[in-house]
Amino acid sequence: MLRALWTSASGMIAQQTNLDVTTNNLANVNTVGFKRERADFADLMYQIDREPGAPVEPGSSLPTGVQVGLGTRVVGTTRMMGQGNFQITDNPLDLAIEGDGFFQVLKPNGDVAYTRAGGWIRNGDDGQLVNVDGLFLEPPITIPEDAEEVIVSPEGIVSIRAQGETETEEIGQIELVRFVNPAGLRKMGKNLYEATAASGDPIIGNPGEEGLGHIAQRTLEISNVEVVEEMVNLIIAQRAYEANSKGVQTADDLLRIANGIKR
């Protein structure tokens, strides 16, 4: 059958993925710490009908030959690690990372996961900091019951002022990690990332050191999705899908005509 049928189909499938990625970005336009993704494409493969440079007659050769491409494929999704906007919340336990880095949280099975979402809550049992899904911040920080004010410095030092006191007391240090290739982290949903072979091992440090960002207290980092850009992507995906569907239709027309020859 016509190669064009499958070629156009590959274009339509690729645009579907493009749409999937774009709609996920738009769905997470308000997700704290979300990093938008982009679908990247590459051409599939070429069927060489006539080798470029093949001699046609003595003394001359084909300049380009016949290379018919067989379509496109999604080669990867790139996570755009650009800084999201900051939202001032006035909640002392909302922490945003200004720059590179991830918070570490402990999953129930003991593994460490990484997140940019810094909305922490005091655990009801002992005042330990957990995220909205109840995962413990690593290394653990416990806010005592009598704390009246919690202060987190840009370097991640957590201090409290107890009731009736005037002096502050240091109770812990927030650590951040970064990766050689943060785009290689695996997304696990719920704002969490997992290290992979591609991301490299985590490089642990205190905020502000070794290329890690600073901590901004009473602030949340919101999604870095730009609605306008995603809307343009939607249009591109839809129109490119449409163009490829015309390719399928035309291939179908050709086959119909071919079948019509024999009466």
Binding site: L2, A4, F41, A42, D43, V68, G69, G71, A240, A243
Partner: peptide, 24 residues
């Protein structure tokens, strides 16, 4: 020949979003 022409056009259209792609 027209079939092959269409094959080439379909490949160009399939790669309308491929970064750095060169049409044929």
């Amino acid at each position: 020949v027209q079939e092959s022409m269409h094959d080439v056009v379909a490949n160009n259209l399939a790669n309308v979003s491929t970064a750095g792609f060169r049409g044929r």
